[in-house]
Design a protein around this nucleic acid. Structure first.
Lengths: 264, 264
DNA sequence: GATATCAAGTCCTATATAGGAATAAAGAGA
DNA sequence: TCTCTTTATTCCTATATAGGACTTGATATC
């Protein structure tokens, strides 16, 4: 009796063989993840990459376009291809911005650290980071917006990866953007986020710090920060008390969600 | 004396001549905007498009990839290229989702219209739509989440474009997703959004409808819906009273902000 | 009638090649 | 010294071509 031919499941990517342009993208991405290239570095020219990768020019170009799309590299006509640095948004938080109601001008913000500690408690952050992690650095900050109103921000970092931070002084950390800081010092850029929101009573430590009535309602906004390949790196929570100030939600991806006419 | 050669400003796209692949993208996009192709339609095959557009296959493919990126078309191996329909997310609002705290399951929602009127007042919506529009259809809805808690939603539509809706009965409009409805009936898909948020006292008509105490604080969430080429089509505002329920923020772009491994 | 095979249509990947355009640095000329 | 020109490097666009892979429907076979 003859061997019955294998019936290939429709829709399956036969064998999981990845396209070459994709393999190249991943290879370059891995190199960046590993720190073989760091933000600001120039990659080899595309024709040279083509030789190294044993691919044609067009294939390498396509791979690089994917990385541009992801916000991992930037390309400049005539200059080269560069690993994207965490570009600091002057005086702004990174996942959202403040503006006056109806206005267009962004409002400047200032941070002040009100507490750093290492904790073992679990909470929403532990399910975000997964079960392997059990020590967290917990940093609480007071965020002032345009000298007018305050927001409370707290960040949870896995202690194993960022242990150096636990030893830093408040003076060192004051005023820094953690998004930039982690990207530059730890090669852990935030590429994407997971966000949830609710209107709830603010916890006592927050109402005390913000100097609003005990039990005041506010927006409780949780932001999980993900890096390359969706690896979790930060979990933060923002407490926003009532105010006229309106928060503009910015895109969650580093690949600056370009206006449509720029997508091409 | 000889004519001084024109000094070209560095960085200028000499003459504004657009790349061919981009011109093709825009041509197809225009056809879709004009309704020459409607959601679900299959576009001509890529090699046929190449002939029509007097371009090579690779160029057409690149143009089509841009449109996929924008969420305007979908391509299926072996089947064809299709204009993206507004895919209904069963029982879910379109700009955000509800889930229980810490849970992963999305909660179903139900709409009930509590008021339709045509108004002339101006407000945040008028600056969003621009000054030319002065009549708006104002639709207020009660949104029930999982039989457990309620949210208030209101939508402002420019009356000139959507006048038919003003004449529709509540029965017709009850339960529909306006995002899908506008996409299908008016060829006005929401491609992108502008969002702002604040914690503020809920207005009386909202507290009455939601049956919460007068003056209760809540999240006031404004969402401006934009279509192709960032043309404004809807302005809506969601009032979220306090609750344990946590809202998951979904990406604002129709181009399903794919997880990183799918970007390639 | 059910199943297997085949063929056409379509998208997907990849290559080799050509010339254009932006940038930066080296060199020529006043 | 300053300005202009040239050159090398680099990215950008576009073409023509080849073969592979998925889907669908028609055809042949049992």
């Amino acid at each position: 009796m003859t061997q019955k031919p294998l019936r290939v499941v429709p829709g399956s990517k036969s064998g999981g063989a990845k396209a070459k342009h994709r393999r190249i993208s991943e290879e370059i991405l891995s190199a960046i993840e590993d720190g073989r290239w760091v933000p600001g570095d120039r990659l080899p020219a595309e024709d040279q990459l083509a030789v190294e990768m044993k691919a044609s020019l067009g294939t390498v170009q396509r791979a690089l376009r994917s990385l541009v799309q992801m916000g991992v590299v930037e390309r400049h006509h005539g200059r080269g291809t560069f690993v994207t640095g965490a570009r600091a948004q002057e005086g702004q938080l990174q996942h959202f911005r403040f503006m006056a109601e109806g206005g267009t001008r962004l409002l400047p913000v200032y941070f002040k650290i009100v507490g750093i500690e290492t904790i073992r408690e679990s909470g929403p952050w532990s399910s975000f980071f997964g079960e392997r992690e059990d020590n967290y650095i917990h940093i609480q900050r007071l965020v002032n917006v345009n000298d007018e109103f305050d927001v409370f921000s707290e960040i949870y970092l896995p202690a194993s990866r960022f242990s150096e931070i636990a030893g830093m002084s408040e003076a060192t950390l004051n005023g820094v953007s953690f998004r930039d800081f982690l990207a530059e010092r730890f090669n852990a850029p935030t590429i994407n986020t997971q966000q949830t929101m609710a209107c709830q009573p603010l916890p006592p430590r927050v109402t005390r710090t913000l100097n609003v009535p005990h039990g005041q309602y506010g927006i409780v906004w949780s932001i999980g920060g993900l890096s390359y390949r969706n690896a979790p790196i930060t979990w933060q929570r923002i407490f926003v008390p009532p105010s006229d100030r309106v928060i503009e939600i910015v895109p969650t991806s580093a690949a600056e969600q370009s206006p449509l006419q720029e997508v091409f």
